[in-house]
Amino acid sequence: MTQDRSIALQVVNQIVALIHAEQLPVGTHLPAQMLADRLRVSRSPVNEALALLHEKGIVTREKHRGFFVARPVETLEAAAPDTVTAAYFQLAEDLLDGDLPMEVAEQTLRARYGLTAAQLNTMLTRIAREGWGERKPGYGWQFSTMLTTPDSLLQSYRMRLALEPAALLEPGYTLDARTLERLRAAEQHLLDGGIETDTADQLHDRGVRFHEALVEASGNAFFIDAIRRVNRVRRLLSYRSTRNRTRYAAHARQHLHILSLLEAGKNEEASQAMRDHLEHTLTALASIRGVLRG
């Protein structure tokens, strides 16, 4: 399998996960640029992935208009056995457990996880895009030490505690109705059973989309850049925290409450509710430090 084909198949799975997690109705437009921005990839693999989904009947193509959801995605439909994703999560676990050095040669990674050269490149490209690893001169990789302790995740939440409530109070704050309904549907999906059935990727990305969308509605480019950066670097410990899912129902209800306040124009109350929500999460994470350690 070529590198480009492997990346496109990964994007296929991500698009299907997005349709599933947000319960996008039939007829929803799927602009390639929007998907590229959400998935942090170029438009080329997105266009190839949409073409593959069109062949599978999951999306439909309309001339001069683009791609649209063709049918509901009731369960996750993998495009192919995802060896790269399995290796990605195992590498993450190995880093958090201290079983993998923070600097390692590409050949070592390829042998350790049983990957082809193209698969390894796809995995490392994803890691670099998410901001927790970078290529060293030559053929080695270096991973971020910021991600390997429970304190890292707690510190990221304290940073968000300072930023996100303030974003909701920015002058001209506007959360459009379509975004609000999309976010509300995603939270209801969790309460309707998604907490138990969604993957770690889906749970993490659903939370990221909620918080980033609310900050983006502030229109403050500095806030937006900061929240995107912190969300990239907290991904690994966030995955591990999904082992304990008992807190997610409360989080979904808190998210829905914040959305209702914003819809009513009660931004002061929404800001306080966001502060309470993040403080609640900090307390919950502190109580599962053992899970975060491995």
Rank of each mutant, 00 (worst) to 15 (best):
Leu50Ser: 06
His277Pro: 11
Arg178Gln: 14
Phe210Gly: 02
His29Trp: 15
Thr149Trp: 03
Ala17Leu: 11
Thr83Gly: 04
Pro150Met: 05
Asp192Cys: 13
Asn47Asp: 05
Val12Leu: 09
Gly265Lys: 03
Ala17Lys: 15
Glu77Gln: 09
Asn267Gln: 14
Ala286Glu: 15
Ser271Gln: 08
Asp176Ser: 00
Leu30Val: 11
Tyr139Met: 12
Gln23Ser: 15
Ser260Cys: 13
Ala167Tyr: 04
Ser144Cys: 08
Ile127Tyr: 04
Val291Gln: 15
Phe210Leu: 14
Gly57Pro: 00
Gln272Cys: 07
Ala105Thr: 11
Trp141Leu: 07
Ala264Glu: 00
Leu256Phe: 04
Ala250Leu: 07
Leu76Met: 15
Leu53Pro: 05
Val59Ala: 01
Ala270Val: 01
Glu55Asn: 11
Ser42Asp: 13
Thr281Phe: 11
Ser271Thr: 10
Asp205Lys: 08
Leu169Asn: 05
Pro137Phe: 12
Arg182Asn: 08
Gly207Thr: 02
Leu163His: 06
Leu100His: 01
Gln119Gly: 06
Glu48Gln: 13
Ser156Gln: 07
Leu154Thr: 10
Ala286Pro: 05
Gly57Thr: 03
Ala166His: 11
Asp192Tyr: 05
Glu263Lys: 04
Ala17Cys: 08
Leu100Trp: 02
Glu181Phe: 05
Asp198Gly: 06
Pro45Trp: 01
Val233Gln: 10
Arg160Trp: 10
Val41Met: 11
Asp151Gln: 07
Leu278Thr: 06
Met159Cys: 06
Arg253Met: 12
Glu77Phe: 01
Leu95Thr: 02
Ala80Asp: 13
Asp97Trp: 10
Arg243Pro: 00
Arg253Leu: 05
Gly140Ala: 14
Trp141Gly: 07
Ser271Ala: 15
Ala167Asn: 07
Asn267Lys: 12
Asp99Cys: 14
Ala284Gln: 15
Thr148Met: 09
Glu22Trp: 14
Thr174Phe: 15
His211Ile: 09
Leu39Tyr: 02
Leu115Asp: 00
Val73Gln: 01
Ala200Gln: 15
Ile58Ala: 09
Leu53Phe: 01
Arg247Trp: 08
Leu214Gly: 01
Glu164Lys: 06
Arg275Trp: 10
Leu259Arg: 08
Lys63Leu: 08
Ala177Pro: 03
Thr174Lys: 15
His189Pro: 03
Arg110His: 03
Gln188Tyr: 02
Thr108Gln: 15
Leu292Ile: 09
His20Asn: 12
Ile258Asp: 06
Leu120Thr: 11
Pro165Gln: 13
Asp276His: 12
Val233Met: 08
